[in-house]
Design a protein around this nucleic acid. Structure first.
Lengths: 111, 111
DNA sequence: ACACCTATTGTTAGGAT
DNA sequence: AATCCTAACAATAGGTG
């Protein structure tokens, strides 16, 4: 790969395709998938894909014993995540790479 | 797609390719990626890919303020995740779809 | 379930606009 | 940075052992 800006293009293209593949896997096989991508370097950004929400899936993943609805710790993680999202809402860009399907979301969050 | 077992094959193939694509994106662009996949239905399983560890990335994602080393909440999440992994270690299959690279891991965890 | 095969379809890097 | 183009390459479903 030639230079820095070519790599940025490659990163975007491949990230989009990764999310597309994930989306296909969800639709085709009824899977639930969460993806978090941190880009490298100065332009450090966070991108995510979730079907359904990333927070719900990673929360279940971290506390792998099946999730009780009123667990304080896990609940607070969700709350905090949503609070932070709200705080930085003006920085948030919704990617909307395709017509976004039911219960599926892609995001881009500058750090 | 014809039947149930053909879909299982498709699911495995596509999941492997999704993880491969993620791995390429990490190597090529220096990105950090975490993926969590829940399969559907009776044979409900959890698969994950992380470069580096899934736990570190999703933890940073959930508490997006940069992670202080001694934050109790986040630390406990990691500990608990690792404890659970240990508890169910006899059930754990390391996928090892390719020669596993430095700081990268794929897992399959029955639920 | 797993490995190999193959025709079709999809992805990719790079160039052009 | 975004969109279109395209030759080279890779993924896919379905088939067979």
């Amino acid at each position: 790969m030639k230079n820095e800006s070519n790599m940025q293009v490659t990163f975007s293209k491949r990230r989009a395709n990764l999310f597309k593949k994930a989306s296909e896997l969800c639709t085709l096989c009824g899977a639930e998938i969460a993806i978090v991508v941190f880009s490298q370097g100065k332009a450090n950004k966070v991108y995510s894909f979730g079907h359904p929400l990333v927070e719900l899936l990673v929360d279940t993943f971290l506390g792998r014993d099946l999730p009780p609805p009123n667990d304080d710790d896990r609940h607070n993680n969700l709350i905090r995540a949503h609070r932070n999202t709200g705080q930085r809402g003006f920085n948030k860009e919704v990617m909307d790479m395709q017509e976004s399907r039911e219960g599926e979301s892609t995001r881009e969050i500058p750090t």
